[in-house]
Design a protein around this nucleic acid. Structure first.
Length: 431
DNA sequence: TCTGGGGTCCTAGGACCC
DNA sequence: TCTGGGGTCCTAGGACCC
């Protein structure tokens, strides 16, 4: 038995937490650069504001309907997420944090839960809400896919009061019959389209398909989904593994054409990615640099550029990664492009205790390595000790990143809320 | 004018091995 | 004139997730 706990309109709920004046008001949260709508409170959904719609298309509508609009405040959401997750960990021994606002609980060998699933679901929901102020839906099923389906039902049907325990076969069947196949976890736009063409429109129709046939047409992944819908577990609770790929990228607030500006952006991303790499005690052997103009603008040709650099020996040294990024960008840069986005990707990742040394390298010298590591450790320590400036620039950085304060193209977050829980000067004062 | 960012897994095909 | 069978590793592309 699995439970899926999913926070309701998570980002929007976080913004409401410290703004009681917004309690029953529509709230939306925008993506980076205030580009798209990425979260809507239930009042905003009721107004018909769609997910992922570009903000400029609904800006006037929001103003007319007194919708409170916020830029993404990632520091706030990450902190609230941690509170929700640690509350869940106090309620179940086996928790898989699946995303910033979702977690699976494994219940089968937890007698407290198994004894009375409804009572347990109720308890989880109310304790999380009491401890964090975030409302959640609790779905329980025989497999992860069924738990997901149950959770979907809690959002879709108010009568569930946020709790759905799928144990009665007749109910499971009924729910599947009235649910679109596109709502199943693992069925995206493409698969939905292809399934529809085969006459499969509801979840139930997918569930009664022959798994072998599904495998033939769609591969082993959807076959597993099909089996899971029938109560046969194919997916386990997963533990947290180091990332196999690390990306740092961002759109610019204005278009960039100069190589100097693009170099600064790319260097900053290389530096950011290097930091993430060290946090998981890894090294990488490949860095990919990429940049592109807007894919939406029909008056200019979509022109993505990218290139790679392979290291002889894996590294997590910011200086080496930034240097490599510069070398790559130098090679791939094209003039007369209005760049809208750039970034880097690190791959060929290994843990630092399992490094494959370069047979021909002349500089395999443990002392040099130790020095590099020590330097990076000091850099990370200083940067965590002293808060970044209001442009998010750390106290210690590589000169080629440039000074953020002077960079016109830095992401815009015009509607940012305070960091209520993570910045001392933003903490609410009660007088 | 204005459209996010960060991940995973699977498959097919090519290069290569014995 | 005739040229096998079985395997691994890597990469790019396609699908999915939040």
């Amino acid at each position: 038995m699995y439970a899926l706990i999913d926070c309701n309109s998570f980002y929007a709920s976080c913004e409401k937490l410290f703004r009681p004046d917004l309690k029953h008001k529509p709230v939306v949260v925008l993506s980076n650069n205030d580009g798209c709508v990425v979260a809507r409170s239930k009042e905003a959904k009721a107004l018909g504001i769609k997910m992922a719609v570009p903000y400029y298309q609904v800006k006037d509508f929001c103003a007319q309907n007194e919708v409170a609009v916020f830029s993404s405040n990632y520091a706030l959401y990450a902190d609230m997420s941690q509170r929700v997750m640690s509350t869940l960990e106090s309620l179940c021994p086996t928790v898989e944090v699946y995303s910033i606002d979702e977690a699976f609980l494994y219940l089968a060998d937890y007698p407290v839960a198994m004894q009375d699933l409804d009572a347990y679901a109720n308890k989880v929901k109310h304790i999380v809400e009491r401890y964090t102020g975030i409302s959640v839906g609790v779905g329980i099923g025989q497999t992860k896919t069924l738990a997901k389906l149950a959770n979907y039902a809690t959002k879709q049907y108010p009568a569930t009061k946020g709790i759905c325990v799928l144990t009665n076969p007749r109910w499971i069947r009924r729910l599947m019959q009235i649910t679109d196949v596109g709502e199943v976890w693992g069925v995206g736009k493409r698969y939905k389209h292809r399934l529809n063409k085969m006459g499969v429109d509801t979840v139930y129709q997918l569930a009664i398909c022959e798994p072998g046939k599904i495998r033939q047409h769609f591969g082993v992944v959807l076959e597993r989904t099909c089996l899971e819908l029938n109560g046969q577990p194919c997916l386990d609770i997963e533990s947290i593994e180091p990332k196999k790929q690390i990306i740092s990228s961002r759109s610019f607030s204005t278009r960039i054409t100069s190589q100097k500006d693009l170099t600064e952006a790319v260097c900053a991303h290389a530096s950011q990615a290097a930091h993430k790499l060290r946090q998981q005690h890894s090294l990488c052997s490949v860095i990919t640099v990429f940049a592109k103009n807007s894919a939406f603008n029909k008056s200019e040709k979509y022109t993505p550029i990218s290139g790679q650099y392979q290291f002889a020996t894996p590294t997590a040294d910011t200086r080496e990664l930034v240097k490599a990024a510069r070398v790559v960008l130098e090679k791939i840069f094209k003039h007369n492009i209005r760049y809208a986005k750039a970034g880097v990707m690190l791959s060929g990742i290994c843990q630092h205790d399992e490094v494959q040394l370069d047979l021909f390298s002349t500089e395999v010298n443990p002392e040099v390595d130790d020095k590099k590591q020590a330097l990076m450790a000091v850099m990370d320590e200083l940067n965590s000790k002293y808060q970044a400036d209001r442009y998010q620039q750390s106290v210690l950085f590589i000169a080629s990143e440039g000074i953020r304060e002077t960079q016109q193209w830095q992401m815009s977050r015009a509607l940012l809320s305070p960091c209520y829980t993570t910045r001392i000067s933003d903490v609410i004062v009660v007088r």
